[in-house]
């Protein structure tokens, strides 16, 4: 049963990494800065998820406080983009439909 848990944890780690890689495509393409702001929010959630998978796989608890800080402060980057950058941004919505 331990082997099944290990397989499931490795699969979860792979899925989180795949999600992060796919999210980088959206950060690269995303026609406006607002899309990138949303993507950065999701990236903070994925970083929390990755730290959680690592903590569950190795049964360490020293990174849970880092999860807490990222969950608490991850929204500030997107708020800053939405407040100060995106209002001056002029995207071309037809460039990458």
């Amino acid at each position: 049963m331990t082997e099944a848990s290990d397989i499931l944890l490795n699969a979860a780690l792979g899925v989180v990494l795949l999600a992060g890689a796919l999210l980088l495509i959206r950060v690269w393409r995303g026609p406006s800065m607002l899309d990138r702001a949303i993507s950065i929010d999701v990236m903070a959630a994925l970083i929390v998820a990755g730290i959680g998978v690592h903590a569950a796989a190795t049964r360490t608890r020293y990174y849970l406080s880092i999860m807490l800080v990222i969950a608490f402060l991850g929204f500030t980057s997107s708020v800053g983009i939405a407040r100060f950058i995106a209002v001056r941004d002029r995207p071309n919505p037809k460039a990458h439909p």
Binding site: A4, S5, L8, A11, A12, L13, V15, A19, S39
Partner: peptide, 23 residues
Amino acid sequence: DLIGSLLLLSGALVALSGVIGLL
């Protein structure tokens, strides 16, 4: 342990579905 691993994998799959929606 097994249920926790299942929950971790399902959470990762939910996150992947959200990212696919973002794309």
